[in-house]
Design a binder for these strands. Structure first.
Lengths: 238, 238
DNA sequence: CGTAGTTTTGAGATCGGTCAATATTTGTGG
DNA sequence: CCACAAATATTGACCGATCTCAAAACTACG
């Protein structure tokens, strides 16, 4: 089950036998969590970080008046809250979008790993920096793109990220309803609905009850002015 | 000149004499750069990271059609692109907002430091994770807050960050014109102008030619529903 | 098969954008 | 110090993307 995590790493960085084994040894027995479960709450002290082995989850922030912003989506192979290794508590929540398989890796194990294998330390540091790059791209999206552009950019990103872990990037189950898409894209559910229809009419994207089908990737990329550079799909050696 | 950097660190984490000296030894002779200078360009390979000793600078992303999003502002004491230590090249640009004093720290020095002083390694990892937290808060701002709320939140953030490095958080020179504020807040310069007038009329904030005066911090916080938790002003020990 | 959740649609309102003109400030050369 | 140019800020009129509110249609599921 840890294979997706290794695939994701190896796509960007080489791993020695030794290093790969060290990672395998890091990950305890996984558990299953149903969809729409909150697995990390804002402010709680964390002694372990969650490695997502299968499924999708998201990070989100709530405001006192009920507004919600989903700040990032995680796919299989991602550490969902590796940043808690240094932050200790998070300023956001994390919830599953689909049924998930995940493993809790104690921070103490991570500390020992990164001290004994400094290159793996940099590799996991890279991983949190990559998350931040996605956060910045979402800032760009929220600040500068139209509703259709934001929607297009989101599905372009998911396409590349899923393809990287050798999953189908053309057709996938996101598990998000239109209200959740709205929370991720800074718009209302009503407008998500109308914009999805627009994209469907233009034969760019079909989204039906949480199932996404990318009909025209190039068209979506053009609409969003999407540049996958921020995903660091081909990383330099550490 | 490195004092602000140390102040910033010590506000959150204790430092042994040894560790403090290691940090002092890390930082080469600073140089001065005038305002509005681009110091890092998207995609260029970086062998060093920039420690900002004095002044303000920002990270920004440009789109093919000319739209621009400023994704973060850095204050004195911040590493502006420590994430380049692992990413090697950045997907955004960095430019100075005011005249700046900065020092370029070679990645090789950083690598040696974090291997020899794992606790400092975690501390600098924390620092990039803190940047990411601010990126997430800006996502929230861009996605959920009104124009006035976004403006208010920006100045609340700057207030706390400047106060942390023992600078005046009530009155400071941002060096940004209204068009730049617009690029940071996902709005147009015209609307920034109108919203600034609104905040001035409400005796919340005065902004005149790059000089900010916070007239009513609590009022701004209420308007923005601002919660400084994401700034991790009181961090846990590493 | 009833009920709750979700999606779809319509009508109208509004926040913020666009375009364009004017005013103000800053910088520069003489 | 002045004259001018360039950048920046301000204001007005109008526009439109997106929101709000509300109802209806659809879907999933016990």
């Amino acid at each position: 089950m840890i294979e997706r995590h290794l695939i994701r790493i190896k796509a960007r960085h080489s791993l020695s036998m030794d290093e790969e084994q060290a990672i395998r040894d890091l990950v305890p027995t996984p558990r299953h969590v149903p969809r729409n479960s909150v697995i990390v709450r804002e402010g709680e002290r964390l002694e372990a970080s969650t490695l997502l082995l299968d499924g999708l989850l998201c990070r989100y922030k709530d405001m006192p008046d009920g507004k919600r912003q989903i700040t990032q989506i995680h796919v299989a192979g991602d550490f969902a809250d590796l940043h808690a290794f240094t932050l200790k508590r998070l300023e956001h929540n994390i919830m599953t979008l689909t049924d998930c398989t995940l493993s809790r890796v104690p921070h103490e194990s991570i500390r020992i790993l990164v001290e004994q294998q400094p290159r793996l330390g940099r590799l996991y540091w890279f991983s949190t920096n990559l998350d931040a790059s996605m956060n910045r791209e979402w800032e760009l999206s929220l600040g500068q793109r139209s509703a259709a552009g934001r929607l297009a950019a989101l599905f372009c990103e998911l396409h590349y990220r899923l393809a990287m872990i050798e999953m189908d990037g053309e057709r996938f189950s996101l598990g998000m309803n239109q209200a959740q898409l709205a929370d991720a894209l800074g718009m209302t559910a009503v407008h998500v609905n109308r914009t999805l229809r627009l994209l469907r009419d233009q034969k760019l994207l079909d989204y039906h009850r949480g199932e996404a089908t990318i009909l025209d990737l190039k068209g979506l990329e053009a609409l969003a002015e999407f540049d996958p550079g921020y995903l660091y799909l081909d990383a330099d050696p550490l």
